[in-house]
C-alpha cells in the first residue's frame, strides 16, 4: 500500500498529493508517468509524475476530477493509501541525457495546457537546476483551473499566463502567446507542449509556423503501461509506436494527432454510461 502523506486542493476540482513510494521516488525522472489503482476492483489509471523527493521517498501527483476514476483518486485523504502505485513508466525527457555543454546556452519554451502544467513542472525544475533558461506559457480555461503558478514562477525566467475567458492573465489561447513571442523576436532551441490532445495539435501547427522544434507528451489510453497491451498505439512519422514504452514524449511534427484523438475516445461512451449511474432507477 502507498500512503498519501500530503494532500491539498489546488482548485476546487484539482488536487495534489504526495505519495509514499520510496522505490519510485528514487528512480523517477522528468517526462515519466506512473499508474495507480485506488481499490481492488479499480482501473489502472495513468498519471504523470509531477515531482519527486528522493530523500523523503515521496512522489507527487496532480489529478483533476473528470470521471469516475479520477473522482475516486481525489476522494482519498491524507493517511489513506493507494492499492497500487507503479512506475516510473515511459522514457524520461530527452534532455536528461544531454551533457552540460550540450545544454549550455540553450533556451526552452514550455507550453502547458490546464492539468498539463503538472508534468511540465518537473521538467522546468530539472532544467532550472542545470542552469538552463526556460520560459513557460500556462493556458487554462479560466483562473479557477490554473495551477502551480507560484511554483512555476520561482523556477522559470518568464511566465506567460493566458485564459480562454480572460479571467486571469491574457485572454486567449497558448498559440496566441506562442505567436506573440515569436513576433517579438523571442527564439527558442526547443519547445515542449503538454496538455489536452487538441491543444497539443494546435500548438504543433503554430510551432511549425514559427519554426519552433516541439516535443509533445501523449496521454493515450493505457491498460498495463509497460508495453503489453498496445492500447496506446500512436502513429509517429508513419510508424506505429507505443506511447507507454516508446514515449510518452515524441517529436510533435511527426505525430498523427487526429488519429490519437480518435483513439483516445474509444471507451468514452462506455465510461460515460458507467459514470452515470441513474439515481431514479431507470437502468
Amino acid at each position: 500500500m502507498y500512503k498519501i502523506v500530503k494532500k491539498r486542493f489546488l482548485t476546487p476540482t484539482i488536487c495534489l498529493m504526495d505519495v509514499d513510494a520510496p522505490r519510485m521516488a528514487k528512480s523517477a525522472q522528468p517526462g515519466q508517468f506512473l499508474i495507480v489503482r485506488t481499490h481492488d476492483k479499480g482501473e489502472r489509471i495513468p498519471l504523470t509524475v509531477c515531482d519527486y523527493n528522493r530523500e523523503e521517498g515521496t512522489v507527487t501527483i496532480v489529478t483533476q476530477i473528470v470521471g469516475a476514476s479520477s473522482r475516486q483518486i481525489c476522494h482519498l485523504n491524507e493517511g489513506d493509501s493507494f492499492t497500487d502505485f507503479a512506475g516510473p513508466l515511459g522514457q524520461p525527457s530527452e534532455f536528461i541525457h544531454m551533457s552540460d555543454s550540450d545544454l549550455a546556452g540553450k533556451r526552452y519554451l514550455f507550453i502547458a495546457g490546464g492539468l498539463g502544467t503538472a508534468p511540465v513542472y518537473p521538467q522546468v525544475k530539472y532544467l532550472h537546476s542545470r542552469g538552463v533558461e526556460v520560459d513557460v506559457i500556462i493556458g487554462a480555461k479560466s483562473s479557477s483551473l490554473l495551477i502551480l503558478e507560484n511554483e512555476m514562477r520561482s523556477i522559470c525566467r518568464n511566465l506567460y499566463i493566458c485564459t480562454d475567458d480572460g479571467s486571469y492573465g491574457e485572454k486567449g489561447l497558448v498559440t496566441d502567446v506562442m505567436r506573440k513571442l515569436a513576433s517579438k523576436g523571442e527564439r527558442y532551441d526547443m519547445g515542449v507542449a503538454i496538455g489536452p490532445m487538441i491543444m497539443m495539435k494546435f500548438a504543433t501547427i503554430t510551432a511549425k509556423e514559427i519554426g519552433l522544434p516541439l516535443i509533445v507528451s501523449l496521454n493515450t489510453l493505457m491498460v498495463d503501461g509497460t508495453g503489453m497491451c498496445g492500447a496506446c498505439r500512436v502513429t509517429v512519422g508513419g510508424k506505429t509506436k507505443f506511447a507507454c514504452v516508446d514515449g510518452p514524449e515524441f517529436d510533435a511534427y511527426l505525430v498523427d494527432f487526429d488519429e490519437a484523438m480518435r483513439r483516445q475516445g474509444m471507451y468514452r461512451k462506455i465510461e460515460e454510461e458507467a459514470d452515470h449511474k441513474c439515481k431514479i432507477g431507470l437502468n
Binding site: 528514487k26 528512480s27 497500487d84 507503479a86 512506475g87 516510473p88 509497460t226
Partner: peptide, 10 residues
Amino acid sequence: ETNVFVGRTV
C-alpha cells in the same frame, strides 16, 4: 514485490 518495473523502478 508487486508494482516494480525492473529496468525502470530499479
